[in-house]
């Protein structure tokens, strides 16, 4: 937050669908290499906020305010610019790990295609993919598999490996671990931590799982009814002020007892 030029900065962001104001965020920023948690109950506007960053809101939604990424204004930006940012500079990791991979494509083809799309030259593709697989500890043999032949954790690694191979500066993780079982959740969370260290990747971690976010994020923003209602370091959990935060904390039995050393 103290960074002079945040990587991603949302200001006075208002999203309305058919006259209903669903998101109203005064300020939200992610610095380079920072992990920010955005936590809220379902329906709080988290996913809508993520979609707005990459300009993929439903057609009947209107957006006001400003979304800047690395000095670029993304709100209302031409499709061409948005497409060059999507995946390439801002990667999204979705909740449905396997379902997010096209069933008719081998995972390797899927990664390769994305690199081609974003103009990574052929000789470099090979080294980047090798590096990415290494970074996410994924067996190269899995690249020959189709999504239905992968486990949820493996599929999620494929998605994250692509983000690494594309050298995304920011990963938007939309409930990226929610569908995975607990041990795999921890592995994927650890992966985000490592990537921040080795690649300098910033992560906006959107989740309803406060425990996971608390163990990972440098800062946590609590969102309720489309607005940020509380903000702070992991300490926000030990002394929650807002009703929603308290509810999120009490909803998770492990947090109240052991908020200082989560997991």
């Amino acid at each position: 937050m103290t960074d002079d030029a945040p990587l991603l900065s949302l200001r006075d962001l208002v999203i309305e669908i058919r006259g209903r104001r669903l998101v109203d965020v005064a300020e939200l920023s992610v610095a380079r290499g920072q992990i920010v948690g955005l936590v809220g109950e379902s329906g709080a506007g988290k996913s809508l906020l993520l979609s707005s960053i990459l300009g993929l809101l439903p057609a009947d939604a209107t957006v006001r305010g400003s979304i800047t990424f690395d000095g670029l204004e993304l709100r209302g930006a031409p499709d061409r610019l948005l497409r060059s940012v999507r995946g390439h500079r801002i990667a999204v990791v979705l909740q449905a790990a396997r379902a997010a991979l096209t069933p008719t494509l081998r995972s390797g083809t899927w990664i390769e295609r994305a690199l081609v799309l974003h103009h990574v030259p052929a000789p470099e593709r090979r080294t980047r993919i090798a590096h990415a697989l290494d970074a996410v500890r994924l067996d190269p043999a899995l690249l020959r598999r189709y999504p239905h032949q992968l486990s949820g954790g493996e599929a999620q690694r494929v998605a994250i490996a692509l983000a690494v191979a594309l050298r995304a500066q920011l990963i938007l993780a939309d409930e990226a671990t929610s569908a995975l079982d607990v041990t795999v959740q921890a592995e994927v969370a650890e992966l985000f931590r490592e990537l921040r260290q080795t690649e300098g990747t910033a992560v906006l971690l959107v989740s309803h799982d406060l425990a996971l976010v608390a163990g990972l994020a440098d800062r946590i923003d609590i969102i309720a009814d489309g607005s940020i209602v509380e903000r702070g370091g992991p300490g926000v959990l030990t002394n929650p002020q807002h009703r929603v935060t308290r509810e999120l904390v009490t909803a998770n039995p492990t947090l109240g007892r052991d908020a200082e050393t989560p997991r």
């Binding site: 993929l56 948005l82 497409r83 995946g87 979705l94």
Partner: peptide, 10 residues
């Protein structure tokens, strides 16, 4: 989801 993911890849 994979169609959304494809669009999110640009």
């Amino acid at each position: 989801a994979y169609v959304e993911a494809a669009l999110l890849l640009g």
